[in-house]
Write a protein that binds this DNA or RNA. Structure first.
Lengths: 200, 200
DNA sequence: CCACTACTGGACGGCGTGGTACAGTTTGTG
DNA sequence: CACAAACTGTACCACGCCGTCCAGTAGTGG
């Protein structure tokens, strides 16, 4: 029965495995990456792996969770302090630029989510939690805009955040398939137009 | 060297394989479905398969193309004749209802696209073509609305269609991860609001 | 009817996979 | 410092995978 690490050394080992797995899963896909490859990249042996994980699926779930935490940490930096429309526009433009710079590999959460949903419940929940956190960041920014009077009082930050996130997510999906940033730009612009419609 | 079938019998065999592959890929994922499983489902042997396909990847591309054609055919029925806002609303509501009825397995094109992009160029192009066709259907409906005077002359059907498709696609991605239709509904409603903003 | 091509079915092989077993080494603790 | 628990490395196994091969069966044009 595998369990949580009980020593610092163990924790470091487990974490190294998860880190490498998250990287490889993101760039090659989960199904297309073998446990052996992950272990080789992490410089770990089978014994370590099955000491901490019950098997492949548990690793996938952990890696998805780790990836989401990374992404959310980055987004928190960009969105956490936003409280104006101009700030939101800038943050999203920066996000789109980063997406383009990495070669449009699809949404880091969305791609994993699509691969995992319906085949690994634990991982699906991790991805959903990632989306939730992202949406909360957007909702927080919108709420601050509303409180500062930039948005009308009747605006609903939660709904707007969902719609905005869907636009971003869908835009990335289209851009990934088309290998063309235009779709994401149009989608983000449309999402922002929605927000502007509620401006005071 | 595999090639196109030259007899009716051959064409039927090839098509049976592609059909079953499209079904299995859609419900289990491409990477998680073996060629042997597809062939067993199609009642075909290895000889037939390698007579028509160079290998796994070519089958994947063909199956993605087939799936897209199916989906687009269905959407053409729903959107082909739409020329009013009410009609568009109804078509999208019907689409959402269908999505819910099938258990929210993600967008039939989007899920495959995410799995295939970056690993199978031919299949990625097929998925992109599917998105293009879908977007054209939306753009056509919007253009008809504009010509009927329901949308202002300055409205840009192509841009609006991209934004609307992104909302739908992103909404499906969120709903799939969350197993909750609410996200898709909010996203679609927001997309429609964008369109209404251009109403005369 | 013949010869030639298209098509079919399945047996087979090499390989990579996820997972197990187990012996050896650290590490923390009393 | 003893000793148990945590941890690590690797050899190994059974299985399923993709793709090859080939012998046989339609089907078709001359």
């Amino acid at each position: 029965m595998p369990g949580e690490p009980k020593t610092g050394r163990g924790r470091a080992s487990r974490e190294r495995i998860v880190e490498r797995a998250a990287e490889l899963f993101a760039e090659r896909g989960i199904a297309a990456t073998s446990v052996d490859e992950v272990l080789a990249a992490a410089g770990a042996g089978k014994g370590q792996f099955y000491h901490y994980f019950s098997g492949r699926d548990e690793l996938a779930a952990a890696a998805v969770g780790y990836r989401c935490a990374q992404v959310i940490a980055g987004l928190t930096g960009a969105l956490g302090g936003v409280s104006s429309l101009a700030g939101l526009e800038q943050a999203l433009a920066g996000f789109a630029a980063g997406f383009e710079a990495t070669g449009m590999p699809g949404c880091p959460i969305g791609t994993l989510s699509a691969e995992v949903a319906g085949r690994n419940e634990e991982a699906r929940l991790a991805a959903a939690a990632g989306f939730d956190a992202w949406e909360r960041l957007l909702a927080g920014a919108l709420e601050r805009m509303r409180q500062r009077g930039e948005l009308r009082a009747e605006a609903e930050p939660a709904r707007l955040a969902t719609a905005l996130l869907a636009s971003i997510e869908g835009g990335m999906a289209l851009s990934q398939a088309r290998k063309d940033m235009a779709s994401l730009r149009v989608a983000v612009e449309a999402g922002l137009a929605q927000v502007r419609a509620w401006a005071s």
